[in-house]
Design a protein around this nucleic acid. Structure first.
Length: 638
RNA sequence: GCCGAAGUAGCUCAGGGGUAGAGCAACUGAUUCGUAAUCAGUAGGUCCGGAGUUCAAAUCUCCGCUUCGGCACCA
């Protein structure tokens, strides 16, 4: 007897082992038709898999959230089948489901073309129509190895060889095509449906290693139905409209050009935004016990040799040969310079923690393929600071930092922040004792700050563990902004010391930390996150006074003066144009507030206030409007 | 850096071995108008750069640069 318990709590008994399909059929033919897979004790399995003992079971249909992953994984298989039918010389490698779809990596001498994509997609739809039954088989290692080797599938053969000894080698067969795969899969290709689309071609290294061959990756997206697919494509289009590179041009914030690759030309409007953020950060840091410094751009190579950067980071550094045997480096980081300031004079334990901040302008020679708008540049400014403290202060300083960081992010409208915790790497400096202490300190601090972290095992810096704070751009790409890194090594290398209570010399610990990361990247993300519609305190132009008739020109000037006197960045538009045009143009450049004035307003000392994106207007006395806007435009945190 | 694609007016894009095209923007003029495009006219180009093929190259070929999409990288 096998007792199967269903999600509703009911139990069905079977005389012997049953498959998921049997159970679904037993419950009803409708469900049997809709069934895609079965979840046994929470684990997703093939519908055909046999359950031979009592179990909690649920039937997975397209309505299930995790049916999507199944669907997408199948889409990858169907694509691979289509590709191999059309291009028999293409070798298969891997093809997983992704956040919005799937991809499959192929090895092939001649690259696929965009035209090929159309052919492949058409063939995929044919395979769905063939409704090939998907069958799972378990092969011996020898059989699998021989099979893939004979077929010329070198990558699959390599993978089989590397599967652990006790691993079951499962093969999924659909029609004449098969693939080595862990599964689970749908019962047949027809269940996939046709709500998929091949999106783009890309290169990708075999097993993600740049030393390996480059494969050809085809990305696709896949959804349960046509409506969801359309919705996704529409969402992509919308996201494209908030691309910071596009908005940067439309709103006249900045530009990039060939003669200064990877460096930003900030236009007046963009620079207002930049400075507003800098002012805000400076106030925040001052309120949190930081001191601000400024250190040199050009620093002799010897300091970088001493810090270890010359050895580890040289390829990313711009250098200048000034005279024979003298190399200056354009600083890629601020830390060694901050240690130099720390080292001036004798520091006592009473001076700690010393929080030294700099809006540090740095340059790094980033690989050409990595450059991306404001997000990845070669010249940037960090909201950098180094906290010199004792080991005992790591937890409290980290906690204080996390609180500050979350406060700042909240002020910029970010509440969904991912925090990654990177612990000790294989190659590292410092004793295990010290690492234990540092990792525990970070863990305690994040817990105290109420942050959930995901572990990035072995990804810490060689000099200490770190926290990374990740924000997401308009099209779902993640960018690291904030960071906190514990460093035991640099104080040692650059000989930073303080005198302790005991009168002896001690090494301080350095916490490298940034909240925005770089102004450039943060502003890029900010633009996308707000879709250019900044809150009042950040908007480069906060208000436009627009006239309806030229008789109101003089009054418009007075209104603007009043607003400016109240600290509001105001422009006046007295062009001889219709109000419709003015509203449209200032809406497109995302000015948050428009004050429309005509004859009526001029006579009554009022303004018609129109908010960006809104339909209605509010008629206010000029005094009221100025007071309201001044209050709204105030920088958060005073 | 690697794989692929693209580069034509300020922007979006069409064209394609034989005089360089459109819409929007710009400029000029008219229009004084009540909340997302008033009308008319004018001007605007090293077709990314360099070499080659050709009577003739924006167009074909090669090399380079930049950008875009991925991958790798991001101490």
């Amino acid at each position: 007897m096998v007792a199967i318990t269903l999600p509703d709590g009911s139990t069905r008994n079977y005389p012997g082992p049953v498959s998921g399909a049997d159970i679904a059929m037993d419950i009803g033919p409708g469900l049997a038709k809709a069934a895609l897979a079965v979840r046994v004790e929470g684990v997703m399995r093939d519908l055909s898999s046999v359950i031979d003992g009592d179990a909690n079971v649920s039937i997975v249909t397209a309505k299930d959230a995790d049916a999507l992953e199944l669907l997408r994984h199948d889409a990858a298989h169907v694509m691979a089948e289509a590709v191999q039918e059309l291009f028999p010389d293409a070798q298969v490698t891997f093809g997983p489901a992704t956040e919005n779809g799937f991809y499959y990596d192929f090895a092939r001498a001649t690259p696929f073309t965009p035209d090929d994509l159309e052919r492949i997609e058409t063939r995929m739809k044919e395979i769905v129509e063939r409704n090939e039954t998907i069958v799972r088989e378990v092969w011996s290692r020898e059989r699998a190895t021989t099979f893939f080797k004979d077929k010329g599938e070198a990558y699959k053969a390599e993978w089989v060889a590397e599967l652990p000894g006790d691993a079951e080698i499962s093969i999924y067969r659909q029609g004449d095509w098969l693939d080595l795969c862990r599964g689970p899969h749908l019962p047949s290709t027809g269940k996939l449906g046709k709500a998929f689309k091949l999106m783009k071609l890309a290169g990708a290294y075999w097993r993600g290693d740049a030393r390996n061959a480059m494969l050809q990756r085809i990305y696709g997206t896949c959804w349960p139905d046509e409506k969801a697919l359309k919705g996704y494509l529409l969402q992509l289009e919308e996201a494209e409209k908030r691309d910071h590179r596009r908005l940067g041009r439309e709103m006249d914030l900045f530009h990039l050009q060939e003669e200064a690759i990877g460096s930003v030309f900030w236009h007046p409007n963009g620079w207002i935004l930049y400075r507003a953020i800098e002012t805000y950060m400076r106030r925040r840091l001052e309120a949190n016990g930081y001191v601000e410094v400024r250190t040199p751009q050009l620093v002799d190579r010897s300091l970088w040799e001493a810090s270890g950067h010359w050895e580890k980071f040289r390829e990313n550094m711009f250098t200048v040969e000034v005279e024979e045997d003298k190399t200056l480096c354009i600083k890629p980081m601020n830390c060694p310079c901050h240690v130099q300031i720390f080292r001036q004079g004798i520091k006592s334990y009473r001076d700690l923690p010393l929080r030294m901040a700099e809006f540090g302008s740095c340059h790094r020679y980033e690989p050409s393929g990595a450059l991306h708008g404001l997000m990845r540049v070669r010249g940037f400014t960090q909201d950098d600071a180094h906290i010199f403290c004792t080991e005992d202060q790591i937890t409290s300083e980290t906690k204080a930092f996390c609180d500050l960081l979350m406060d700042v992010y909240r002020d910029f409208g970010f509440t969904d922040v991912r925090v990654k915790f990177s612990d000790r790497p294989a190659k590292r400096a410092g004793s295990d004792d010290v690492w234990d202490k540092a990792e525990r300190a970070l863990t305690d601090a994040t817990t105290a700050a109420g942050l959930e972290t995901t572990l990035n095992p072995g990804e810490g810096a060689f000099y200490g563990p770190k926290l990374e704070f990740v924000l997401r751009d308009a099209i779902g790409r993640d960018w690291q902004c904030g960071t906190l890194q514990v460093d035991f090594v640099l104080p040692e290398r650059l000989n930073a010391a303080y005198v302790g209570e005991d009168g002896e010399k001690h090494r301080p610990v350095m916490l490298h930390r940034a909240i925005l990361g770089s102004f450039e990247r943060f502003i890029g993300i900010l633009i996308e996150s707000y879709a250019g519609k900044f809150p009042l305190w950040l908007a480069p132009v906060q208000a436009v006074v627009a006239t309806i008739v030229s008789e109101a020109d003089a009054y418009a000037g007075q209104v603007a003066e009043r607003l400016r006197a109240a600290g509001i960045r105001t422009a006046v538009d007295t062009r001889n144009e219709k109000i419709n045009l003015k509203v449209r143009e200032h809406s497109l450049t995302k000015v948050p507030v428009m004050l429309v004035v005509g004859k009526r307003e001029a006579e009554q000392a009022t303004v018609a206030v129109r908010r960006l994106g809104g339909q209605e207007q509010e008629l206010l006395a000029l005094d009221t409007a100025v007071a309201t806007l001044a209050r709204e435009a105030a920088m958060p945190g005073g």
